[in-house]
């Protein structure tokens, strides 16, 4: 029998459990916030505090949310810990996933598909998150068709432009990016909802088959909700005309500039919006 207090043991279970935990907190929690924030471009249409109507309100609500987040104290710290968590979860996830050998060919059970998809969506999710963060956060605009650089002050317009491939309209590459986004968020939402379900088994919260089924309904419900939010946001941004949105954001910005005129001079003010200087 192996030694009960060997180092391999404590690390092994700890890493496994941290992998599970990191998927829920902070990544999962962040995902929920992120998707609901994004969806504000659609649900913001009901925000009567914003001027205009329909998507106009949505664009402004979204901008409002983004600005709020951007003004959070210690934002970089939050971001750093998120990136660390995502990196940790991804690397371990890949290590764990390559140890398994999916066999849906022989055993075509829905649960077995779920298992296989969890791994597939994980792989897709890693690529997607990297692309998403690199292009829209780190400004690797060479990866963006049309070279749009996302800006938190022109959140909706730059995003819409990045999805379309240009400010003028949909380009082929833009459509590819949009499809990529659609796939990416779908995978991530599935990965999260299923991970939430399996984590309850891993940690031993849901033991009986009945409890697992019940918790499965809850997770499925949450997954459907998040999926709705994600798709809604995506559709919202696809319908947003970047030029119109830009005008709305300018309006919001000038309002804001009056208050904090001394701040934020160089970054976007001088250059043409959303293009490389």
């Amino acid at each position: 029998m192996t030694a009960t207090d060997g180092p391999r043991q404590s690390h092994h279970l700890l890493l496994r459990r941290l992998h599970s935990l990191s998927g829920l907190v902070p990544i999962g929690v962040f995902l929920i916030f992120h998707l609901t924030t994004n969806a504000s471009v659609v649900w913001g249409a009901a925000n009567t505090r914003m001027p205009g109507e329909g998507l106009e309100r949505g664009v402004q609500t979204f901008q409002h949310e983004v600005s709020w987040i951007n003004d959070m104290p210690g934002l970089l710290l939050i971001e750093l810990s998120l990136w660390l968590a995502i990196g940790f979860h991804s690397i371990l996830g890949v290590v764990y996933a390559v140890g398994g050998k999916p066999n849906v060919g022989a055993y075509k059970y829905p649960d077995n598909w779920r298992y296989t998809l969890q791994r597939l969506t994980g792989y897709v999710g890693i690529f997607f998150i990297f692309y998403h963060v690199a292009t829209l956060r780190w400004g690797w605009s060479f990866l963006v068709p049309g070279g749009t650089v996302w800006s938190h002050e022109y959140a909706a317009s730059t995003l819409a432009a990045a999805l379309r491939g240009s400010y003028e309209g949909f380009t082929g590459a833009g459509i590819a990016v949009s499809i990529g986004y659609f796939l990416g968020v779908t995978c991530l939402v599935f990965h999260f909802a299923n991970g939430l379900w399996t984590s309850a088994i891993t940690w031993g919260l849901t033991v009986s088959e009945k409890a697992q089924k019940r918790w499965g309904m809850v997770c499925a419900g949450l997954g459907v909700g998040l999926m709705g939010a994600a798709w809604m946001a995506l559709i919202g941004f696809l319908l947003t005309d970047p030029v119109d949105a830009r005008a709305l954001e300018e309006g919001m910005l000038s309002g804001a500039h009056e208050v904090q005129a001394e701040q934020d001079e160089g970054a976007i003010g001088s250059a043409e919006p959303g293009r490389e200087p």
Partner: peptide, 14 residues
């Protein structure tokens, strides 16, 4: 709790 233990389960439930 060791390598090869319960945490290696992937919940495929086959």
């Amino acid at each position: 709790m060791n390598p090869g233990g319960v945490s290696e389960c992937g919940n495929a439930q086959n």
